[in-house]
Design a protein around this nucleic acid. Structure first.
Lengths: 208, 208
DNA sequence: AACAGATATGAATGCTCATTCATTTTTGGC
DNA sequence: GCCAAAAATGAATGAGCATTCATATCTGTT
């Protein structure tokens, strides 16, 4: 078995175990058993437990970035690109549910307890959204007042919170495609109806 | 010292310690020291470490719900209500930063490792958003196609992801008020410019 | 088929806490 | 000020588990 095979095998096992029990409740021996490997073997490929989690992030988010970039290459319309991003992000739940669960639960707090680790891959992933927004603004399709750096986070946060629906409850009453469509529609068109939009004196400070 | 005082004192200490180290890295003795209490005393008020976290959620989210409901009572316009919710939610970062950090980091995964615990207070909190959306739809201000159950999650997720900006990086380049305004504006008006909105044949499947 | 280096094994080690409970201190009624 | 009940203390216990390392197995080269 080539070295990289065992590395991969352990990462995949870790995804399964972390998804099931969470990082802190997972034991190294759980991962070893899942990977059909001795406990000590894991330390030939990783420095420690944290290192497994970090490698997992880097490897798997890296793959996601490649996939989504490839998908977006073929598309020109920024509106459609945003929807494609949403669909692709949420489909992770179908295609790689355990990975989705781990990213959902552990990515967040990784910054907290692993002070020195800056998750550059994750930033790269979210920056795909702001790139789309800037493209839309350059084409005059999107409003100039929208701050891409803020909107990217809001859009990602909305998607990610939708993910949680499926991660935590098996049957939330919406399909993944419906949710993706709703979220990108919300961000593109907003919630206002024609009447809400055209109503004379803005009673809010929102347009500031 | 009344019983409830010590209960509160321990909860406040736990917020500080969990904010600093995260739930799993926090030691009971850390909380005890912070609360100026013996380790054993904590077990007179809580069953175990999880119980502290759960009580913390219940108590503090309960307070938030009361505050925000009181704030919204005085407001009639659903557009403004949404913005108020956003401002109030993000202001938690200013007023109770440690609590914001704990909710941000620990609330999420609580469902994961505490199987039996359903965070009903949290659900109640998020449902304030869907109530606002329904109100806006009833008044004809918001589009009927928007699903309140989906939109509430998207809106909350967007806000919460914005929170993370401040929790993780001290100086993200936006003020809390700007961010709140941007997020509610995004959800209300969307990203499309007039030209993007009026452009003839919808090239996307979003309006489905 | 013998050997060396590379890989893999898993039992043993040692540390870190959550939790307990025998003991001490505080409280308030008389 | 005395006493019993209530609260509080913190040292001791023991379970859990990441990591190590002496030993074993495998691989491929001559």
């Amino acid at each position: 078995m080539r070295v990289s095979d065992k590395h991969q095998k352990i990462i995949q096992a870790a995804i399964t175990v972390f998804a099931r029990k969470g990082f802190f409740n997972a034991r190294i021996s759980d991962i070893a058993k899942e990977a059909q490997v001795a406990d000590g073997t894991i330390y030939l490929y990783f420095n420690n437990k944290f290192d497994i989690l970090i490698s997992l992030f880097e490897d798997e988010i890296g793959k996601l970035i490649l996939q989504i970039k490839q998908l977006l290459e073929k598309e020109e319309d920024p509106r459609r690109m945003l929807e494609l991003f949403a669909i692709h992000h949420l489909q992770l739940l179908k295609n790689k549910r355990e990975l989705a669960e781990v990213l959902q639960m552990e990515l967040r707090q990784s910054n907290k307890f692993m002070k020195e680790y800056r998750n550059t891959k994750f930033i790269e992933y979210v920056d795909i959204i702001s790139a789309i927004i800037r493209k839309g603004q350059a084409q005059g399709l999107f409003r100039k007042e929208v701050l891409p750096g803020v909107a990217k986070r809001a859009f990602f946060g909305a998607l990610d919170e939708m993910s949680r629906l499926w991660v935590l409850s098996p049957e939330p009453g919406y399909t993944i495609e419906e949710a993706a469509s709703q979220v990108s529609d919300l961000f593109l068109s907003g919630m206002l109806s024609e009447s809400g939009r055209s109503e004379a004196a803005q009673p809010t400070a929102l347009s500031a």
